[in-house]
Design a binder for these strands. Structure first.
Lengths: 242, 242
DNA sequence: GTTTAAAAGTGGTCTAGACCTCTAGCCCAT
DNA sequence: ATGGGCTAGAGGTCTAGACCACTTTTAAAC
């Protein structure tokens, strides 16, 4: 089940295997899973390696560990009702605004370190960069820089993304369904070049986002930086007691 | 500096020592701290033990690690997780920071129109306004203006909210459990008065939030405006396919 | 049977190595 | 000057042990 010859770390392979066992219902919430020493023996790997996998899954909220007792599958967080994952196009549709785009860059580039790390690929590996100026009602709204990595990504270079939703295209042509994303949002002053593109004053306040998007198999395929005009865009989020 | 005879784990002692060095300014944000092997030698402990301390501090947001380069003190940006409904106090505790508040206003006011609408009460009706300057490690972080409406709200005026969590108080004394919230986030330039209070430059970028909070019966009881320093805060949110 | 003590099993901490990838600086050949 | 390769040093992964704190089970003593 684990492949020691690949470049994928063993602890990561074990994490994915454990995730699968939980997701497929082999182990249900509250169940006791095999002990560190059992897993260590079963897969022929060191206990410390098993611990790294188990501890990271605990951080992710999938496991609960108790000294002397064992490791249990955690109760699922009642954290549903999360904010909906949408791309720019769908986001604008929900706001009843006409969306569009001007492609600024569409090329292969070497993956910058943080991107490579997030997408779990080796650094400097060539990936697709799609940079677009996003428009709402023909007025610039945001700058989106998406780094994409998946098999067949080269074909993205030949496609026209001025009028096309990236997420829609990915699900149609590649079966890649944006399923989950982790996003950071901060307020910064925009730089000169960005301001010009967005038609706002230099140093105006903008929302800067960083998003890592995962497909239906929980594989990260997109890393996106985006800059939204502070005077035109409000980010909406719904919170609930976990 | 580390005591191997006590029951306190070595990695934990090292964490506390590193926290101290950062807090006292020996190492400043962006500084390179000693390598794992240096720390391992300096304290006469194993490298794996050092790694446990460093990795946990990275999780806490105090360090940033780069393969091949080294370990750096992270920029003092506090990541506020919008994945669960939490208040300022709880967020600070997660990062082991001392939180506090200075009450700016604590009075009855006529409900402004948007507030009255959101809380589903008639306009101009008197409600409680609690305005606080929120502090982390004695440094101003945010301005929070909460409009509160529920039966018995008048007693809030007699309470001391300099050291007390509002959400905690509401659930303890009134059985009002913040269960759900709708929040809007935008980037704006701060106004003069706000900048002074927050100790930042005029027109600096800040995160402005509007939050409507509902209790366990889905009754809106709080409408909050808040301004978070853009240089010290970043919001984290998880998105998922409905 | 009940109580108590030992044993077995769990996760938590720790060691002293090993090899890997990646970065940066240095030096040499072009 | 510029590019390329080497190398030292950084963090990342992994091993095969060890002992500890704690819980559960078992077995012995009453």
């Amino acid at each position: 089940m684990l492949d020691k010859t690949t470049a994928i770390p063993i602890y990561y392979q074990l994490k994915e295997w454990l995730r699968g066992e939980i997701a497929s219902g082999v182990w249900k919430p509250g169940d006791l899973i095999p002990s560190e020493r059992e897993l260590s023996g079963k897969f022929g790997i060191s206990r410390m390696t098993v611990r790294q996998a188990l501890n990271e899954l605990r951080e992710d909220g999938l496991l609960r560990r108790e000294q002397g007792r064992g490791t249990y599958v955690a109760e699922p967080k009642i954290e549903q009702r999360l904010t909906r994952l949408t791309g720019f196009t769908e986001d604008m549709q929900r706001r009843a605004l006409q969306s569009g785009a001007r492609v600024l860059r569409q090329m292969m580039v070497a993956a910058p370190a943080p991107v490579a790390h997030a997408l779990r690929i080796s650094q400097e590996k060539p990936i697709v960069l799609l940079e677009r100026l996003r428009m709402a009602e023909h007025e610039p709204m945001a700058i989106e820089s998406s780094y994409l990595h998946f098999t067949g990504m080269e074909k993205l270079l030949e496609e026209d993304f001025e009028d096309q939703s990236l997420y829609h295209y990915l699900s149609e042509k590649y079966g890649i369904i944006p399923t989950r994303a982790e996003q950071q949002v901060e307020a910064v002053q925009c730089h000169e070049g960005e301001c010009k593109l967005l038609h706002i004053e230099t140093n105006a306040a903008v929302l800067r986002n960083r998003r890592i998007t995962y497909d239906q198999k929980n594989k990260p395929f997109e890393y996106t930086w985006s800059i939204y005009r502070g005077d035109r865009y409000i980010f909406y989020v719904e919170l609930s007691l976990a």
